[in-house]
Design a protein around this nucleic acid. Structure first.
Length: 521
DNA sequence: CGACAAGTAGCTGTAGGTGC
DNA sequence: GCACCTACAGCTACTTGTCG
């Protein structure tokens, strides 16, 4: 068994390394392609070069050949073969017999010092289970390595850290224990390694964790001023694998030994830096959100109620709000994305304000709420929004709601989207539907992307700047009556951390303004 | 995290050359 | 004079890197 474990560990590490190496190789290819020596202008300068059409065609061919910025999906969108999915379904019952803490997945609020424990909160120690943790993949924007080392027993846990390749991270790499390994994802220019995904391996199950907080004590409640939220699900080892010890298979098999069937009704939503076109556009950023909503059967042509809580706000405009709203409805029509793109469209102007003001609420604390919080203004260094964006005519001020935690005086670092459908009596259905997104993405174009048109191909592309990841958790209930689903529908699925519906900003109120060189959200 | 500036690509209009 | 063509300027949209 020990040798099997060893080989699994190695396989997992090798596969992750290969995956990242794949990115690295693409980046190297890009660099090589970009670093071709420039064409010698003088060599082609002469009478023979006057076939302009030919020159232009050649130039276009060169441009097309060295156009690597677009990320194509083939390498990423590896779907599980139908046969494998069938096999997984067959072992569901057997897997259920293995006791794991969170077999169906759960959403927790972080424990916070000074507050009574409840069934809805969780400590970092309870997530990591130090004594049982065999292998951990951590990703985060911000780190406190001393603190992290206190939560992990490095004598029995192998650790892989996925980080932005900053100078600090490189320094951390040098000082790290020998069984700490590092990966630095490609960034394609400015942006943030904002994903906080964790994969934790225990002896009999794999735990997938998607928190909104970074690996610092403040984000896990230890300073008593900040709250985050965590999604986690435990995937049990499949019994047939337990019988098949000693079989040296590859990484796919290594992961396939975990029973993913419980994740079938959970959507994984992510953003990757760069421009993405063709099929991959549909899987990335806010269009990935729309695709996921559609795939889970949650799309609707009717209006929806959207409540978004975030720790940082970008310079958002009406057309961006409209795009997010459409994604929440599950619209995946790429051509329609164009509607929200034209800068001159009414949606980018203040005139678009009435469109969603009754159905779209952005929860962000007022200055007063931050000042009155337990940690005061000093505790709000990871809640970012710039005053100049607030004063821009295109900023949807009327959508803003004060974000007040229902644990008195706590600030929130949570990124949460709550969407509720309306039901129609004409539809003849009593099924009310809602869903929640929980993850790392704030409300910004850097996180969710924006649609641009490729100059050479004329095709639509989605451009993101950050690594982000999160989950969509559907909520389905049967209930009579018209109108939107009540917020209570989320009970049992997602603990709602803030007071809803949030109070609108008063005329003399403004959001908490904070701007710093390096954000840690 | 977005603003901003610099650089690049691509489109369009047009001046000027050439042939009929 | 007219049609056609090339070369190029000007403009716009977009990418990329820097800055705060």
């Amino acid at each position: 068994m020990a040798s099997t474990d060893e080989s699994e560990n190695e396989q997992l590490e090798r596969a992750i390394a290969l995956s990242l190496q794949d990115h690295a190789e693409r980046t190297v290819e890009n660099v090589l392609q970009h670093s071709e020596p420039p064409p010698n202008k003088f060599a082609s300068f002469g009478l023979g070069s006057l076939d302009r059409k030919k020159m232009e065609d050649e130039r276009l061919a060169r441009v097309a050949a060295k156009r690597p910025r677009v990320v194509h999906d083939e390498g990423y969108a590896a779907e599980m073969p139908a046969s494998k999915r069938m096999a997984l379904q067959k072992v569901t019952q057997a897997a259920e017999k293995i006791a794991v803490p969170f077999p169906k997945g759960t959403v927790k609020r972080t424990w916070v010092r000074g507050f009574d424990r409840s069934a809805d909160d969780i400590k970092i120690e309870e997530v990591l289970q130090r004594d049982k943790l065999l292998l951990a993949l951590f990703s985060s924007y911000q780190w406190d390595e001393t603190w992290l080392l206190s939560k992990v027993d490095i004598s029995c846990t192998k650790v892989l850290l996925v980080a932005f390749a900053s100078d600090e991270a490189q320094e951390m790499r040098q000082n790290a224990p020998s069984n700490f390994k590092f990966c630095f994802p490609y960034m394609r220019g400015p942006g943030s390694m904002h994903s906080k995904l964790q994969i934790l391996r225990f002896s009999s199950y794999l735990r997938i964790v998607i928190p909104s907080g970074n690996l610092v004590p403040n984000d896990w409640g230890e300073t008593g001023v900040m709250e985050n939220m965590v999604f986690l699900i435990d995937l049990p080892l499949k019994d047939y694998y337990l019988r098949a010890m000693g079989v040296d298979t590859g990484m796919v098999n290594s992961l396939s030994k975990y029973d993913f069937s419980r994740t079938e009704d959970i959507g994984f939503v992510y953003s990757m830096p760069g421009s993405h076109e063709s099929n991959f556009l549909c899987q990335n950023g806010y269009h990935g959100l729309a695709t996921t909503i559609s795939a889970l059967g949650l799309a609707t042509g009717s209006s929806v109620e959207v409540d978004i809580a975030c720790a940082s706000l970008g310079s958002i405009k009406y057309d961006f709000v409209h795009a997010i709203y459409r994604a929440c409805q599950g619209h995946t029509d790429i051509e329609k994305l164009e509607e929200s793109k034209h800068p001159g469209s009414s949606l980018s102007q203040r005139s678009g304000q009435s469109e969603h003001q009754d159905s779209f609420r952005i929860y962000f604390p007022t200055h007063e709420t931050v000042a009155r919080s337990r940690g005061g203004e000093n505790a709000a260094g990871t809640i970012c929004f710039q005053e100049k964006w607030w004063h821009m005519s295109s900023f949807p001020t009327e959508l803003m709601r004060d974000c007040v935690n229902n644990r008195d005086g706590l600030l929130m670092h949570t990124k949460l989207i709550l969407v509720r459908h309306r039901t129609s009596s004409e539809a003849g259905t009593s099924k009310k539907v809602a869903w929640a997104y929980l993850g790392s993405a704030n409300l910004s174009e850097s996180a969710w992307g924006r649609v641009v048109t490729d100059r050479t191909t004329g095709k639509k592309k989605l451009m993101c700047r950050n690594w982000e990841c999160g989950v969509v958790l559907p909520v389905r209930v049967s209930e009579q009556g018209n109108g939107p689903v009540d917020m209570k529908v989320f009970q049992g699925t997602v603990p709602i951390p803030m007071q809803v519906p949030g109070r609108k900003y008063l005329q003399n109120e403004h959001p908490w303004f904070f701007h710093r060189h390096v954000q840690s959200t």
